[in-house]
Design a binder for these strands. Structure first.
Length: 326
DNA sequence: AGAAAAAC
DNA sequence: GTTTTTCTT
């Protein structure tokens, strides 16, 4: 994907979980789930998360293992689910389908050869968010009283919108294009073991002396999820050109280049489909035993795989309960 | 996704 | 020095 270039421009700093106490983070659900899905599928045998009817619900394992981190640090997540796919993203969807097909071929090859390690690796890549995964994820979040919001289109755009309105303190995503969606503060690496990384829009703009609109133009020149970017233009050159010519169209004119649907891509970042038809309660009160039986009994997930996660959530809860009285 | 190497 | 490709996990 193209937006690795943004990483070189983004203003990043490390932050401690202690500083996030009581904060609200609008998490890009697809991004977050996908991370746990791939690791779960990669490291555990499939019997653990496959029902007797062959339904794969590795997402439930991922959620139970991933949520304790939020509870333990008193960081309230609001998961934001994607709505319909944007028309422009069709190219990317097609590309992913191609990649998936290729991966499936290689998987079949590996299985034929009896190469189980390679097969397991490839299987992670072919994983996708099925409708069962979409539904069971929401149901488990309901039981755990963890809030979530449905985005009309891009989850990232909706999350950024909520952060701009002040309904969330941060956006949670690994993707750098939350900057282009105007997220003031983004938390990265919420899934990994170390400290989170904070990405600041204002600092990024200050650092390079750009307006927000100009940053979007720089992004489009380097390439985004919605366009391939201009050949031979990376972050440094894009920055220089936009400063020189003011905006994307100035650059394109001066260079005699074209970016297909440039104005629509711009709109997608500057004014994406979002909704303010949402509400959520940050006072989270999970029904752990109901969640446990949902995962273990209803969806036949191995107890060993999730017991630890439920315990951690339980512990974190009684811990904060004590805090309130001391 | 990130690092390193190659190409420009 | 910057961008693109390739390798590795």
């Amino acid at each position: 994907m193209g937006n690795a270039a943004l990483r070189q421009l983004a203003a990043l700093s490390e932050v401690s979980f202690d500083d996030l106490d009581g904060r609200v983070v609008a998490v890009d659900a697809h991004n977050w789930l996908y991370r746990y899905l791939t690791t779960t599928v990669k490291w555990t045998r499939d019997g653990v998360y496959t029902t007797s009817e062959g339904e794969e619900v590795a997402n439930l394992v991922g959620i139970v293992q991933g949520l304790p981190k939020f509870f333990e640090h008193d960081l309230v997540p609001v998961f934001v689910f994607d709505g319909g796919v944007t028309e422009l993203k069709d190219d990317e969807v097609a590309e992913r389908r191609e990649q998936r097909e290729k991966a499936e071929e290689m998987l079949a090859d590996a299985q034929e050869r009896g190469d189980h390690i390679e097969a397991a690796r490839l299987e992670a890549r072919t994983q996708r968010l099925t409708s069962v995964i979409q539904e069971t994820s929401r149901e488990l979040l309901d039981l755990l009283d963890v809030p979530y919001v449905e985005a009309p289109a891009e989850g990232e755009a909706q999350a950024a919108y909520m952060a701009r309105r002040g309904d969330a303190d941060y956006v949670g995503s690994e993707d750098y294009d939350t900057l282009l969606f105007g997220a003031p503060l983004t938390l990265r690496q919420l899934t990994s073991s170390g400290n989170p990384e904070l990405m600041s829009l204002d600092e990024t703009l200050d650092e390079h002396d750009l307006t927000y609109e100009q940053l979007v133009d720089v992004g489009i020149l380097c390439g985004t999820d919605f366009n391939p970017g201009v050949d031979g233009i990376g972050p440094k050159t894009a920055l220089k050109l936009v400063r020189e010519h003011g905006d994307l169209f100035g650059v394109l004119e001066a260079r005699g280049e074209h970016v297909e649907f440039a104005d629509r891509i711009r709109e997608l970042f500057l004014d994406p489909p979002v909704t303010d038809e949402y509400e959520f309660d940050t006072d989270v009160d999970p029904d752990i035993s109901a969640a446990r039986s949902y995962v273990i009994e209803e969806w036949e997930v191995d107890a060993d795989e999730v017991e630890r996660g439920f315990e951690r959530i339980d512990d974190a809860l009684s811990q904060t309960g004590l805090d309130r009285w001391t």
